[in-house]
Simulated scan of single mutants.
Amino acid sequence: MTNTQPLRDTARRVRDVLGRLDEEQDIWVSTAGAAGEPYLVPLAFLWDATHLWLCTRIGNPTGRNLADGGRVRLALGHTRDVVLLDGEVTVFGPEEVPVEVADAFHKKTGWDPMGSGPAYHWFRVRPTAVEAWNEEPEMVGRHIMRDGVWAEAS
């Protein structure tokens, strides 16, 4: 399958990514354990216009890796419309998460982690790098955020 859409400029890619962060409910979460064991799971998420918020049990491999490693790689889409986000993680216990975040997460996803018990912790991800491309022709210009700063329009 070949993409016949015109190549997107930087501004369009940024708008497209921000739109997907607002609209999509699940994101692929990639972490690694201390010994390097990789884990890849889908989790529901909330985008608050600055951070992504994830919630999972602190005792499962992904929760432990997010808490211990402090870094994560996230992915949206399929192989013909890719968004990769690298970020720094801050952990919040169930009693520490801002109420407005928990409420917005529940409204967006239909799941209320606050009612799921104390094992569920929140992970705020500050994006530090974002890449976005539709197939090979868009590989050039795919870096639309570096060092936490969105790229300017090309």
Rank of each mutant, 00 (worst) to 15 (best):
V14N: 06
P127A: 08
L46A: 01
L43E: 08
H143A: 13
C55E: 09
F105T: 00
T62Y: 01
M1E: 11
E152S: 12
R64Y: 06
A11Y: 00
V17M: 08
A11L: 10
E96W: 04
D68Y: 02
K107D: 15
A119P: 00
Y120L: 12
L7I: 14
D26S: 11
L18K: 14
W47R: 08
G115R: 12
D26A: 14
V99A: 15
G77Y: 06
S30Q: 09
R20D: 13
N65K: 01
A102T: 04
P94C: 09
H106A: 15
A153N: 14
D103E: 15
G110P: 06
D103P: 00
R8D: 05
E88C: 09
A49Y: 09
T31F: 02
N60R: 12
L21A: 02
G59H: 14
D9H: 08
D68W: 04
Y39F: 12
L76P: 06
T31L: 04
A119G: 12
A67C: 02
P61N: 00
E96Q: 15
R126K: 15
T90H: 03
V99D: 14
P113C: 00
V41W: 03
T50A: 14
P98E: 10
R126F: 04
L52F: 03
G33S: 12
R124G: 04
L18P: 08
F45Q: 02
L85Y: 08
A11P: 02
L85T: 10
I58G: 07
F105G: 03
T50C: 04
L66C: 02
W47K: 12
H143V: 12
V140M: 13
R73Q: 13
Y120G: 00
L84K: 11
P118M: 10
R15T: 12
I58K: 12
G59A: 13
L66W: 07
W53M: 07
L76A: 01
L43R: 09
D9S: 11
V72S: 07
A153E: 13
W150I: 10
L46C: 09
G110L: 07
E135S: 14
W28L: 13
T62L: 01
A75S: 13
D9Q: 11
G59F: 06
V140G: 11
M145A: 07
V83E: 04
E37F: 08
V91D: 04
V149P: 07
M139I: 13
G69I: 00
L43N: 11
R20G: 07
V82A: 04
P113D: 02
H143M: 12
V82H: 01
V89W: 05
W53G: 03
R8L: 15
V72Q: 10
W28G: 11
A119N: 10
L40A: 15
N134D: 11
R126C: 03
G141Q: 12
W47G: 06
R71S: 12
D48S: 04
V125R: 03
